[in-house]
Write a protein that binds this DNA or RNA. Sequence first.
DNA 1: ATCACAAGTGGACAGGAGTCCACTCCACCA
DNA 2: TGGTGGAGTGGACTCCTGTCCACTTGTGAT
Lengths: 221, 221
Amino acid sequence: MAKSEASGTRRALPMAGERARAERRDAAENRQQVLAAASRLFAARGVAAVSMDEIAREACVGKGTLYRRYAHKGALCQALLDENTRRMQAEVLDGLRDRNRSALDQLSSLLARLFAHNEENAELLGAVSDAAFGARRDDFYRSAPYQWQRLMVSGFLRRAVADGECCDLDIDYLADTLLAPLDIDLYLFQRRALGIEQARIVAGAQRLLLDGLRSRSDNRQ
Amino acid sequence: MAKSEASGTRRALPMAGERARAERRDAAENRQQVLAAASRLFAARGVAAVSMDEIAREACVGKGTLYRRYAHKGALCQALLDENTRRMQAEVLDGLRDRNRSALDQLSSLLARLFAHNEENAELLGAVSDAAFGARRDDFYRSAPYQWQRLMVSGFLRRAVADGECCDLDIDYLADTLLAPLDIDLYLFQRRALGIEQARIVAGAQRLLLDGLRSRSDNRQ
DNA sequence: ATCACAAGTGGACAGGAGTCCACTCCACCA
DNA sequence: TGGTGGAGTGGACTCCTGTCCACTTGTGAT
């Protein structure tokens, strides 16, 4: 439940070249309190039913403190997702070692892993999406987890073109477009409202997208 | 600005088999007031900057009245979009007359027309999307305009399979998935943040999706 | 014309998000 | 070891959404 950034270390910005001061001890404690409280309340009553006020109260912290750390509920949910996100990323990176697989094959696996991530973290991902509106419309697309996905996809695409698996592609456009079917709102609609099982979704997406990318001799225009 | 449902007719539910009473004259007037006020304020200051309170005030109507008609700001925006939506639908239906074009060709045109619709109505579509969160998560996917799009797409897919343009497809899954790249948040990100022009988006989507659908002899699994 | 009642009205209210800012406290430096 | 500046704190406050409900009005039936 505690994210690794917060547990153990006291550094706020572990990046290279930091001028940042150490995170204060009380601040670090409060950060823990907040994440623990949120995770407790969410588990008990569901993300949607818990207000930021309540989280602050449960964490014995003022609202200002809560908002200083997490600009909105979506950011807090991102933080709670952090551990799962890292695990997923590590798994994907692990699969990358197998140099025998073609770029498109690996892209196909990535998609499967990302759909699984959707399935496993549906509620928090939904909350993240809920918070992205108005001025925050593209917060999601600018977020680190999404940009990581985008980076992976465009890497695969570049390699696929280099290896002659595809004729040339508009990679900058496609990177985001290939990820579009993963949209959590769409995914939840297909899973829950239409009752389509995860495996069918993954298979459908892989077939559509991979066939759409693959080189073909009779490629018009 | 006034939607046709409200202008001229006084019937609230023009469906067959209606037991519904006529819409009261005062109610009809207020409906007009509300739409006019909203359209005025939105034009002046942007959708996001206008609150429901203000719209009610500007329309000389109580908040209760406003909410009776439009459950939330998103629904109001849908209503304002109505006229444009109808026009777009009529155009698409018109293009359907040309019986010489293959189903996939027509699907391709549909996509182009839908992207244009996105472009022309970006702000209101964004507001509709903003309102769809939490319990309203899939309001968008259940809305009449979206269901119409879905219907068109699955119709084309069915015809494409029947005509042998595609080998068999998971139409129920694909109908929504083909529409995923039209997601207004994604579209706005690509247009504004990435600076990709509309034509490039349309071309990219058409190529990816249509090639993904088309029958191919070396089609694995 | 008049009546009964459903439809329509509007403002008070509840509750949540997010801001603001005067105040506290601690990590670092000299 | 003490002083200090900036990070951290918390709660009052604003603004907004959406609900509720007592009241009003128009409509179709008689």
